[in-house]
Design a protein around this nucleic acid. Structure first.
Length: 124
DNA sequence: TTGTTGACCCAAG
DNA sequence: TCTTGGGCCAACA
């Protein structure tokens, strides 16, 4: 594979970038894709680091990542949660007043670990 | 190396 | 629906 030099962060970002517009997925789901079914916290940590800049280069659609309850867990500070809801709505995702998304409709199943490897190899 | 923290997940009550 | 408690992982001091 493309060397394990790729850190967990990179893998997380790679997967998040593959989330189709108008779809959402959960932290745990991403973690499972990376072969770490219980590393949801680490995923959140990665996105938290990204949140500091709000956008990275290349950009990461972090707004499409929510918790398994279909609820936006982004900190309200800096209007993060509100911004996320707005961005999702702009993509056609229905977000309730409680910042909840119907996963039965918008959930993105995700990729398989083997596909992740392909992406990290640069052949997306 | 240890302890703490975090945009989590799951099961119970 | 909300609150607890336990657990797993990665980054940081």
């Amino acid at each position: 594979m493309a060397s394990e030099g790729a850190h967990f962060y990179k893998q997380v970002y790679a997967v998040v970038r593959r989330i189709p517009r108008g779809r959402v997925t959960s932290y745990g789901r991403i973690a499972k894709m990376l072969g770490r079914p219980n590393a949801a916290r680490a995923v959140g940590y990665a996105l938290n680091a990204l949140g500091g800049k709000r956008e990275a280069d290349p950009p990461v659609p972090w707004q499409r990542v929510i918790n398994s309850q279909g609820r936006i867990s982004t900190p309200n500070m800096d209007g993060g949660a509100d911004l996320q809801a707005a961005l999702l709505r702009a993509e056609g995702v229905a977000v309730s007043d409680d910042l909840k998304v119907d996963l039965s409709v918008y959930l993105w199943e995700g990729l398989h670990l083997i596909e992740i490897d392909d992406i990290l190899s640069g052949r997306a």
